[in-house]
Structure formats: structure tokens, C-alpha cells
Design a protein around this nucleic acid. Structure first.
Length: 567
RNA sequence: UGCCCCGUGGUGUAAUUGGCAACACGUCUGACUCUGGAUCAGAAAAGUUCAGGUUCGAGCCCUGACGGGGCAACCA
């Protein structure tokens, strides 16, 4: 793994700041030289490329330093969490190439320990039951610039707290009627320290513990302690949890029995331009039918990217290339596209496919004749071998590859011009037919038999080489062309404007194209390079009689780029 | 206007204990090519937010400004 160029570059550059910290800790012999991380998703949605960044770090650090990485589902809120998501999360992590072995845990595994810990805090006078409404509690919390005020229930005797908390859990009180709060400091400059709520009453059944509990720990009360229970040495999370760290430490202070405590390190979240990475907003797209499900190839979800044709290696390389820092960065999607092109260039077989067909008739080619021409599968990898493709009198070429009146640097077919048909013959345009509107209907060419690939005049130089497909043999296929989902570089960055305002109406275009017959036997998710066009893969919607391809990413195209900029 | 974090080419990242600002993407040339792909060669592009200070020497240390982000869910 990582034996490609960007992988090497990555090794060449220094450690990221987290690796540096880990190495420092190792050097100091902390935690008995253990390195133990965890990836802690909430099972309330599908994983997206932002999670991939965290996964690669969590598992990557463990791998690199001979440690372990747990998978832990942070399932502290039964209202939002579902088993459906757990399955998809497991699948996506495995697909990326990581394995947690038997170490699959759940925050709910620790509900008992957490409950006992809460009871402990109550006994020590460090937690109390508050009977006030959430509005009132919020009001008393103050603001970042104004200190909060203490709850009238703050000094409730431990015995009373104990019995109330017990009743909260036995279901004696309605949801929202009471909470358990840590007693810390209502005047703290850190809002999270102002007597945070640590338990609330929820009567919705939990996907794993059913109706056993009626109180559930808040994330802030569960997360750090779960890390502690699991012996995590390095708790890696995103920047927004920085201000939570003092609170987590406060809890661990009460729990700690020796030197060990998890060390939390925060890194920058992944942002991509033209992309939205918020589970809530992605869920909206799915629910409102703006896309066709979580695995719609336009989605930044891992299942969406997979269906689009992205490989796990490409995603890992991409993640490695953008690095980990404490700066809020916005990455350009071109980096992601580079990663998938780089990977697919090495592994995708080249095939012939014409997306926008124009019929070419070879006037001097024998009627009814068919040839099987040999062609190489991948010039980047000889071990991928050769195959044959059928050739006959009528072929399709790309409409763009013919012009009646071409500009100067146009290398392709035009009246009187010669081009090579890839792996076949050099042909010359002798005539063409248009309709009344001037649309090109057919092009007539002669072929030169001696120029067949491998033949005596095969080396004759011509400017252009075209891909083609035999009309007689080609398979019709549905081609799904994807463009960015949003037309604005920062769809979530406009205050008061729903990102959906910026949805690109042309993000999906479905066309019918023609592909070489050998593609009949391809399997879902098989990757191909449609020569001169782009990378495509077979969509799982395909049926034996109907091939459906997704465009993963177009090929780099310096010609059309030059055209667009007018040079 | 409280607390916390952060400012290095267009973008993302590097720069041993202070020592000529490096790499990748992108952009632009040119070469080569039976993919206008790939590959190869090259170029433009920051003097490190600003102002002071320490030092023989500061992107790295100190101070202060300015700018960006985060924090006030019975969400995670």
C-alpha cells in the first residue's frame, strides 16, 4: 500500500503534528508504550469523505505505531440512531481497507458504568438533579460574555439527588421534566463547564438496550469516559471539540486511579469546495429526493463515491495528500479528482465507447466484412494483456471528432483530412451529408488497408487518433454523466441561504452511447477508461440486457481547456 | 464583547534544537505519443497577515494589533 507517487511524497514530508505528538509520547514511555485509538461514529447517518479523513488517521496511527484501533458506536441518543446505519458504517470502513478485528464497541456497552459513575458524582456532591425546564436552564447558563447563575436545585442534598436520579431512570418522571447536572462552575469562561447536563430522560427504546434505561448520558458525559474505559491513549477528534476538553478532563479527574488518561488531540475537519459535508443536510437531500439515495454517485458519502467509481486507494491517497493541521482548510475538489485519475490510470482497462455518435461509412471497405482487431488493454500495465474488437464498414465516432470547418490546431477529422482509428486503419474523409438545418448526418471516408495497426504503413504519421465502435457490433448503453452537485464553491457559506439553492440542475445527465461488445460481461463497479473520454464504471442498476455506466471523472483535456479560454 | 484555536504561492501542506522558504494539486510552455490521456522537460506564482522586540541571523521565540474560526442543543 502507498507504493505510488503521492504515497512516497507523503513519506518524504515530515510527520504531521499528531504523529509528532505520538512519537514524543512513545519516546517518553507514556502508557507503557501503547498506542490505542478509536473511531467513534454516531450511527445516525452514512459515512462521508470527511469521516474517511478521521478513519485514516485513527486506524493509520494505530497501524503505523503497532497499536490498535477500536470501532465504537457512540449511541447515546436512541431517538436518532438506527441499526441500518451500523451496517453501512462497518461496510464502508472495511471497504476503505481497515479492520477493528473483534474490537467493536458501543457507548451503550458502558451505560452501567456510566450510571454508577454518575451516582458516584452525586454522592461526592458533584452532581445534582435539576427540576427546571430546558428554557430556564438555558437562560441561567448566561452567555459567553455574561456569567451564568446557579440553579435553585444546585444544593439539593445527595440523598435526595440519589433517589430522584433513581426514579428518573425507573420511568417515574416524564421526558424533559428533570435532568442530572454536573456541579462545576456557573461562572466559568468556558460555557461547557457551567454545570453541564450529563443525563436526560428519554423513553424511546434504544436499538441495543431496548427499554432497560430511561435515562441516557449526554455525549459529553459518555465520550471521554468511554475512551478511558477502553484504554484509549490518543483520542483524536475534530477542532470543534477543543473547548470540550477541559470538561472531559474534569470527569477523568474524578475517575482516574493511576497515571493513565487518554490524550485528546484535535485536528481540522475535511472541507471540500462545491460540496456539503453535513449529515443533516445530506439526509435532507435524500429525504427530499434531490438525489437518489445515500449512494447516489453525486453524494460525498463513501457509498456514493464507491458507486461513482472511486477506489479506496484513491480516497486514502487523497486524504494523505491533504494532511492534518489545526487550520480550517477548504480543499479543492481537483485534488480528489487527481487522486482517482492517478489510481485508475494504472488499473482501469482501456475500452472503446462513443458517447455522442456520428456515423462514418468507409466507402471502400467490403460490404459485410468483419475483422477482429487486436488492441492493448492498458498501455500503463502490459500484464493486463490484449483483446480483440470487431471492425466493419460502418462505425461510430464522437460527434466532436468531426468538423466541417475546423480551427487551426484541430487534429481530428474534417473534409479531406486523415486520422487514425485507434488500433485500426488510417481513414480519409471524402464527403459528408447534412440535413436542411446543416446538421451532420453521416461522414464518408476511405480507409487505407496497408495502414492497419501492425501493417506495412502503420507508422505513417497522422495528427489525430480517434476512438470508434463498429455500428454492427456495438452495444447500446445508458451513460450517466455527473457534474458537481452544487454550482457554488461554498454552498453552506451563505448566511440565511439553504445550500439547496445552489444545487446544480445539470449534475446528472443521462445519455445513450455505444460501447464495444466485450463489455457485455462486465460486473457492477468494474472500472474502465473509455478511451479519450474518461473513467467509467458499471452501475449496479445494470441488468443483463442493459448496461449502465457512471462517469467517475473525465480525462484531463488540454484541448478543450485551451478552446474554452480562447487561446 | 468573555474564553479557546488558528494566520506560509490560487488551493492543500513542508521547513532537525532559530540558518538560502520546499512539495503536491491547479495554471502556463515545450517534447513525445496509434488516447489532445499517460509520461518527460521547464515556467509563472508566496518572502511567511501587519508593527515592534530578542538575536550575527526569525516562518519558527516575545509583545501588540489586524484577520479567520469555534463555544451559550435535555445533538454528536
Amino acid at each position: 500500500m502507498n507504493d505510488n507517487r503521492s504515497g512516497e511524497n507523503n513519506l518524504k514530508r515530515g510527520l504531521n503534528f499528531i504523529e509528532a505528538i505520538v512519537e514524543e509520547d512513545l519516546k517518553e514511555g507514556k502508557n507503557g508504550n501503547r498506542v490505542h485509538t478509536r473511531f467513534p461514529p454516531e450511527p445516525n447517518g452514512y459515512l462521508h469523505i470527511g469521516h474517511a479523513k478521521a478513519i485514516c488517521l485513527d486506524f493509520g496511527i494505530a497501524e503505523r505505531y503497532g497499536g490498535k484501533c477500536n470501532l465504537r458506536f457512540d449511541d447515546t441518543n436512541p431517538i436518532k440512531e438506527e441499526t441500518e446505519y451500523i451496517e453501512s458504517i462497518r461496510e464502508d470502513i472495511h471497504w476503505l481497507g481497515y479492520d477493528w478485528e473483534k474490537r467493536e464497541y458501543y457507548a451503550s456497552d458502558y451505560f452501567g458504568q456510566l450510571y454508577n459513575f454518575a451516582v458516584d458524582l452525586i454522592r461526592k456532591g458533584l452532581a445534582y438533579v435539576d427540576d427546571q425546564s430546558s428554557d430556564l436552564i438555558a437562560e441561567q447558563k448566561g452567555t459567553p460574555t455574561v456569567p451564568g447563575i446557579e440553579s435553585p436545585y444546585r444544593s439539593r442534598p445527595a440523598e435526595e439527588n440519589l433517589s430522584l436520579f433513581e426514579k428518573m431512570n425507573s420511568g417515574a418522571f416524564p421526558e424533559g421534566s428533570r435532568v442530572l447536572r454536573a456541579k462545576i462552575d456557573m461562572a466559568s469562561p468556558n460555557m461547557h463547564m457551567r454545570d453541564p447536563i450529563i443525563y436526560r430522560i428519554i423513553k424511546h427504546p434504544h436499538h441495543r438496550t431496548g427499554n432497560r434505561w430511561h435515562v441516557y448520558p449526554m455525549y459529553d458525559f459518555a465520550h471521554g469516559q468511554c475512551d478511558y474505559f477502553e484504554g484509549i491513549t490518543h483520542s483524536l477528534c475534530t477542532l470543534e471539540f477543543e473547548v470540550h476538553r477541559p470538561l472531559y478532563n474534569w470527569f477523568i479527574d474524578q475517575l482516574q486511579t493511576d497515571d493513565y488518561r487518554p490524550r485528546q488531540i484535535e485536528f481540522n475537519r475535511l472541507n471540500l469546495n462545491y460540496t456539503v459535508l453535513s449529515k443533516r443536510k445530506l439526509l435532507e437531500l435524500v429525504k427530499e429526493g434531490k438525489v437518489n439515495g445515500w449512494d447516489d454517485p453525486r453524494m460525498p458519502t463513501l457509498c456514493g463515491l464507491r458507486r461513482r467509481g472511486y477506489t479506496p486507494e484513491s480516497i486514502r491517497n487523497f486524504v494523505a495528500s491533504i494532511g492534518y493541521t489545526k487550520v480550517e482548510a477548504i480543499n479543492d475538489v481537483s485534488l480528489l479528482e487527481f487522486a482517482i485519475r492517478e489510481d485508475l490510470n494504472k488499473r482501469a482497462p482501456r475500452v472503446m465507447a462513443v458517447l455522442n455518435p456520428l456515423k462514418v461509412i468507409l466507402t471502400n471497405y467490403p460490404e459485410g466484412k468483419t475483422e477482429e482487431l487486436e488492441t492493448i488493454n492498458n498501455p500503463e500495465d502490459e500484464s493486463m494483456g490484449v483483446r480483440t474488437i470487431p471492425f466493419s464498414k460502418e462505425i461510430y465516432i464522437e460527434r466532436d471528432d468531426f468538423m466541417e470547418d475546423p480551427p487551426k490546431k484541430y487534429f481530428r477529422l474534417a473534409p479531406g483530412r486523415e486520422v487514425r482509428l485507434k488500433s485500426a486503419y488510417i481513414i480519409k474523409c471524402v464527403d459528408y451529408k447534412t440535413d436542411e438545418q446543416g446538421n451532420i448526418l453521416e461522414v464518408y471516408c476511405t480507409y487505407d488497408e496497408t495502414t492497419r495497426s501492425g501493417g506495412p504503413d502503420a507508422d505513417r504519421k497522422v495528427k489525430g487518433t480517434l476512438h470508434w465502435v463498429s455500428v454492427l457490433h456495438a452495444l447500446e448503453a445508458e451513460i450517466r454523466l455527473y457534474d458537481r452537485l452544487y454550482s457554488d464553491p461554498d454552498p453552506s457559506g451563505h448566511r440565511g441561504k439553504d445550500p439547496k439553492t445552489f444545487l446544480n440542475p445539470d449534475s446528472l445527465k443521462i445519455i445513450t452511447g455505444y460501447v464495444e461488445p466485450g463489455l457485455k460481461n462486465s460486473k457492477p463497479l468494474d472500472h474502465f477508461q473509455f478511451q479519450r473520454v474518461g473513467y467509467f464504471n458499471l452501475d449496479p442498476d445494470s441488468t443483463p440486457g442493459r448496461l449502465i455506466f457512471n462517469r467517475t471523472v473525465p480525462l484531463r483535456d488540454t484541448w478543450s481547456r485551451g478552446q474554452a479560454s480562447g487561446t
